[in-house]
Write a protein that binds this DNA or RNA. Structure first.
Lengths: 336, 336
DNA sequence: GTGAAAGCGCTAACAC
DNA sequence: GTGTTAGCGCTTTCAC
């Protein structure tokens, strides 16, 4: 920062004291109009900007939010980030990003890295490994140190903090009912998120919808996928073992797109022979052939609401913790 | 930051001076071993972390990089970000993200927002609007204020700074030659990036490859797409006007995937009747049916190299500006 | 109407 | 071996 202009420099050049310059820049009534004008002119010329670090130190607030994202290559999280950035900007907050890459250790490091006064609080979605191994004390530590956390999407009821989620149960419940109403007889669920709470909720929505309906009650068919390598083989085998399958609901879009691919390969006509519903609104849904019907999580709103919630918390540390639920909706495209 | 522990608190509680505590935490040879142990024990108990803002102020460096990304929903940029985050982390740097959303105004605001001592330097890719309207003085201003900039992918020769790019010309040149070698006779280019320098370079690579070859010299066929709405109609019309088309090269993967979709709709068999090559390695390429052959930009390496370059610059402000070229490679999948 | 001084949390040169 | 002090850039209270 070689050429950074400071109040001191301006003061010296104008033959004024630092405090006068500071006040002038704030249009203080104490300062002579002419002086104000002089100061402002030079400040502009020198591109003066109050140093943020100094302000943070002085005010004990950074106006910065720490964001920890499990996977930036996931469209959902990118879209949440878009919402976070937009809303943070509107409120004069900056965002510092850390990526946990779904690892507990990286999540922990990120939390520690930023809890050195870098940020005023956190917005995060829990790493897959953290959730499957049921870690949570690191969150508690951070909260105890005075950093509020807002969790979104992947949350845990072990931690008392603000949360922003969708109703995963309702989302798949409604989607399953949609397939039932279409007259689909054999509806399968492909889940790649079994280790996550949201994955369990999504499975529950599917189950409940079938259970509510006598003719489907005993026709539950769930395929769990645990690794990237499994997608294609697991889905192929689903098709082979269930020739009469005519409806597929998935908990993510890679599963849905892969199901679509397998359906093509096996000569099914979509949506005539089989309907497919994905989860999350991303580019793939629109570009696949045929385009994919999906459950939209309104990711942008999740991000936006998370920032709102964190800022509210920052302004009122003692309010009760809230869990806000963002609506989902089914976007009908060509696979149903 | 209610409970943040400071040196002052520790000093008071231990009946020591602030500087003794500070030195003890740094294992200073001046300090008695026992004291060091006492200090460290309490520091640990109280989760003491030196305040980053205070350090920044003291050292005149933030150990933070400002990153300005045109579009976070673009897989390429997300992947670059992954590389940036990883390399920054390794070097104990944090990253603050701003999104320009391809708007000049937002890019300008982001630059101004962060040039208040929030960051030590910038890594950015130029917003589409900035490039099409040929703005560049805002970059100059920032550099003059002492903030080094590393530009990646979308760069401009109007600004003297470090750059990290791929050889766009060579990438399409090679890809086109690959199609020629396959015996494809009528090869079209679909470009959605005509307003960007990289788009022009990519078109040049295609043109040059055809020109080098007498039987292709006069068979250049370029479709320019200027808006999202155009993709499907423009590509449909390309197919209709050129029934003998048997090879398609694109400058992005939305074009390629759309071309694939149109080919399906029109009853072409891919890759038998027509070959398609996309640009950028993303999820769509692997998930489309058939999976898409693409030019991989090695986005992760671009991000990594950008951070390396910026850190070198920060350590040696007077070195000559460099432009580093990251290799591309053609990933052969099922559409060729 | 302007300026001096204290303090945010930290480090480091310099006492003692 | 430990403590005092100055200063990073800023705001704000309190003099003058």
């Amino acid at each position: 920062m070689i050429n950074k202009t400071t109040l001191k420099q301006l003061a010296k050049e104008l033959n004024l004291s630092i405090s006068t310059v500071s006040k002038a820049l704030k249009n203080s009534y104490e300062i002579n109009e002419k002086t104000i004008a002089r100061v402002k002119a030079l400040a502009k010329k020198r591109h003066y900007r109050p140093n943020r670090m100094a302000l943070s130190l002085k005010n004990s607030q950074t106006k910065t939010i720490g964001v920890i994202i499990p996977n930036i290559l996931n469209y959902f999280f990118s879209k949440v980030l878009l919402g976070i950035e937009d809303e943070a900007n509107k409120n004069d907050y900056q965002i510092i990003i850390c990526l946990s890459n779904n690892k507990y250790k990286k999540e922990l490091q990120s939390l520690e890295l930023l809890s050195d006064g870098s940020v005023d609080g956190f917005i995060l979605s829990i790493a897959r490994e953290t959730q499957s191994k049921k870690h949570s004390s690191h969150f508690k530590d951070i909260i105890q140190q005075g950093y509020p956390i807002v969790m979104f999407d992947r949350v845990t009821n072990k931690i008392k903090c603000d949360k922003v989620i969708i109703d995963d149960f309702e989302a798949t419940f409604n989607a399953t009912n949609y397939l039932i109403k279409q007259g689909r007889k054999k509806i399968a669920l492909i889940s790649s998120l079994t280790d996550l709470n949201i994955g369990k909720q999504r499975a529950n929505g599917y189950k409940k919808a079938l259970e509510n309906n006598t003719s489907y009650k005993n026709k539950k068919l769930i395929v769990n996928i645990h690794s990237k390598a499994e997608y294609e083989t697991a889905i192929s085998s689903l098709f082979e073992k269930n020739k009469n399958i005519d409806g597929i609901l998935t908990t993510d879009n890679v599963s849905a797109t892969t199901a679509l691919k397998v359906a093509h390969q096996k000569g099914y006509s979509v949506p005539k022979d089989i309907a497919i519903i994905g989860f999350a609104d991303d580019k793939i849904s629109r570009l696949s052939y045929p385009s994919l019907t999906t459950i939209d999580q309104n990711a942008f709103d999740i991000g936006k609401k998370s920032v709102e919630t964190l800022i509210e918390r920052l302004n009122n540390k003692s309010a009760e913790f809230k869990t806000k639920v963002i609506e989902t909706n089914l976007i009908i495209r060509e696979t149903t």
